[in-house]
Simulated scan of single mutants.
Amino acid sequence: MTKSTDQDYDFATADFNAVYRGGDLLGGAGITKAPWDIGEPQPGVIEFERLGRIRGDVLDAGCGLGDNSIFLASRGYRVTAVDASSTAIEQAIERAGGADIEFAVADATSLTGFEGRFDTVLDSALFHTLSADSRLEYAAALHRAARPGAWLDMLCFAAVPGGMPEPLSVPERSVRQVLDETGWAVTELRRAVYWGVAEVTREFLAKTGTRVEIDARGRTQLPVWSVLAERA
């Protein structure tokens, strides 16, 4: 569960370039390595693919170090992977080796130059990192980048007991409202699990009073919303 704490963080100041170089993600949080870097695709992304929720040209928005993109490319999908962090993209290209993936540094809240290109949009833990206003801009940008009838598959930290503190987690009603206002019709929203590296976030979780499940491999088991939507 999450309890009140004297430790406040300004999540808008998160420095993603810094953390990919071994610096501080967030002042005072003690996070100096990407806690989402588990070295393999997220189980929720694997589940999207298993359910047949990936098709055509795919946009991986906020791709980070590229493990989800690499997985989808290995399954034969045409993947474009974007991230605002140039350091993440550099490392993702190296990690991908010769995989046929289009990598680009791009602002996901605008996605200029990517209009009308994609049949599937994947968001594995980007939405919740944005401010309330930026979430609207982001969802609208995804809508512009998607073709008519495109699918959106999203994993977003859930504001539930045992989850990350707000505003780094999002209530269900907020997810639905943002997507509805930007032209996405939610077809399914349920609880799922997002893996992270427990050791990397141990100090942060202690300061925020957040207690989460940790598996035998030292990974956090964080609750997320698994969201399926269609471009209306």
Rank of each mutant, 00 (worst) to 15 (best):
A141F: 01
L142A: 06
L142D: 03
H143L: 01
A145L: 06
A145G: 07
A145Y: 01
A146S: 15
P148D: 13
G149E: 12
A150M: 04
L152I: 04
D153S: 15
L155F: 10
L155D: 11
L155T: 10
C156Q: 01
F157E: 08
F157D: 07
F157Q: 05
F157H: 09
A158Y: 02
A159M: 04
P161A: 15
P161I: 14
G162H: 13
M164H: 03
P165E: 15
E166M: 12
P167G: 11
S169N: 02
S169Q: 03
S169G: 03
S169I: 04
S169T: 05
E172H: 06
S174E: 15
S174W: 06
V175S: 00
V175K: 00
R176E: 11
R176P: 00
Q177W: 11
V178K: 00
V178D: 03
V178N: 00
D180S: 12
D180V: 07
E181Q: 14
E181C: 08
T182N: 05
T182S: 07
T182K: 03
A185R: 09
V186P: 00
L189A: 11
L189W: 01
R190W: 02
R191H: 14
R191I: 13
R191M: 14
V193M: 09
V193I: 14
Y194G: 09
Y194W: 11
W195M: 06
W195N: 08
G196E: 13
A198Y: 10
A198I: 04
T201H: 02
T201S: 14
R202F: 05
A206W: 04
K207P: 06
G209L: 11
G209T: 09
D215I: 12
A216E: 08
A216S: 13
R217Y: 03
R217L: 10
G218D: 05
G218S: 03
R219W: 09
T220S: 10
L222M: 05
L222N: 12
L222P: 00
L222T: 12
W225D: 02
W225H: 13
S226V: 08
V227A: 02
V227T: 11
